[in-house]
Amino acid sequence: MDLTSLTIDDLKRGWHQTATARYCNYCDASWETTTAAATIEQHLTIVHGGIQSPLIHLASRYNTLTTKQQNLLTAFATGIKDADLAKQFQLAAATIRHQKFTFREKAKQAKLYLAIYQSVFESGQTPNDLIVLPEQPGIIDDRFAITEDEAVQTLKQYFNFDHDPLQLKRWPKKQKTIVTILTRIIDEIPMNRPINEDELNHYLQPIYFDYTTLRRYLIDYGFLKRTVDGRQYWRTTTKED
């Protein structure tokens, strides 16, 4: 699941909607836009064990909850009483109450951080802001006029974000789409240090079977530079970097 393309409400309910369909956050299931939410919730319960549990246990680098915390939150979601939960986990009731307090404090911290982040990085932006690309060696045309909204939709279409490491589903035909997917692929390459070709291939091979094509396009579109002898590669920088 690509967290960056979903709202908090999308994450909480376990499914999201586009202009054409409704989609499960955890599998390839989809429904018509007129499908009742109760039908999708039934799918979440039967296939994924509920609405809260798959989110709590989501395998993502952004999920920093420990196994113990995940188990506690799953139990809290059932509405079980603190005393009964304490017996179940063989903990003191005071420990359960303290853990609830800790979760509330973390939520307050996250809320404040989100407000700060949005104030700093999202104020004054519009949906049509263009993403920043490396300086191009050739003629600049509409291939490089990619809005943030376009990028989000394209990346969702072409990448399997449920797979770790990142995995490209198929190679696009349009050059603008190729440029867009390269903006995500390049994030898998370390910055601020040169790497040799074997190291570069190590990062690219899990993403797509034709990793030589990835490498070539990353160079052609200025995302990577290399020495004349081809022994060293390094990421280029943009104004944002």
Rank of each mutant, 00 (worst) to 15 (best):
D2W: 03
D2S: 07
D2I: 00
D2L: 08
S5F: 07
D10H: 09
L11S: 11
G14H: 08
H16T: 13
C27M: 07
C27G: 10
D28K: 12
S30L: 04
S30C: 04
W31Y: 08
T34L: 06
A36M: 11
A36P: 04
A37R: 14
A38L: 14
T39H: 12
I40P: 02
E41S: 10
Q42Y: 14
I46W: 02
I46F: 04
H48E: 11
H48A: 08
G50V: 10
P54C: 03
P54N: 05
L55A: 09
I56P: 03
I56G: 04
A59G: 02
S60K: 04
Y62L: 10
T66S: 15
K68A: 10
K68D: 09
K68F: 09
Q69K: 06
Q69P: 03
Q69F: 05
Q69W: 05
Q70Y: 03
Q70K: 14
N71T: 11
L72F: 15
T74F: 04
F76M: 05
D82V: 15
D82K: 15
A86S: 10
K87A: 08
K87Q: 10
A92T: 05
A94T: 07
A94M: 09
R97V: 09
R97Y: 15
F101R: 09
T102I: 13
E105Y: 13
K106W: 12
K106L: 11
K108H: 09
K108L: 14
K111T: 10
Y113F: 14
L114G: 04
Q118G: 04
V120K: 09
S123Y: 14
S123V: 10
T126G: 08
P127W: 06
P127E: 14
P127Y: 06
P127K: 13
V132S: 12
L133T: 00
L133P: 00
P134R: 01
P134E: 02
E135Y: 05
E135P: 00
I140M: 04
D141N: 15
D142L: 02
T147N: 03
E148F: 01
E150F: 01
E150H: 01
Y158G: 01
D164V: 15
P165L: 08
P172D: 01
K173Y: 00
Q175G: 02
Q175N: 07
K176Y: 02
R184G: 01
I185M: 02
P190V: 06
N192Y: 15
R193P: 01
I195F: 13
I195T: 12
N196G: 13
E197N: 04
E197D: 08
D198A: 14
E199C: 05
Q205H: 13
Q205K: 15
Y208M: 00
Y208W: 13
F209V: 14
R215F: 03
R216F: 11
I219H: 02
G222A: 05
F223I: 00
R226I: 05
W234Y: 11
R235E: 04
T236M: 04
T237P: 03
T238S: 10
K239F: 11
E240H: 07
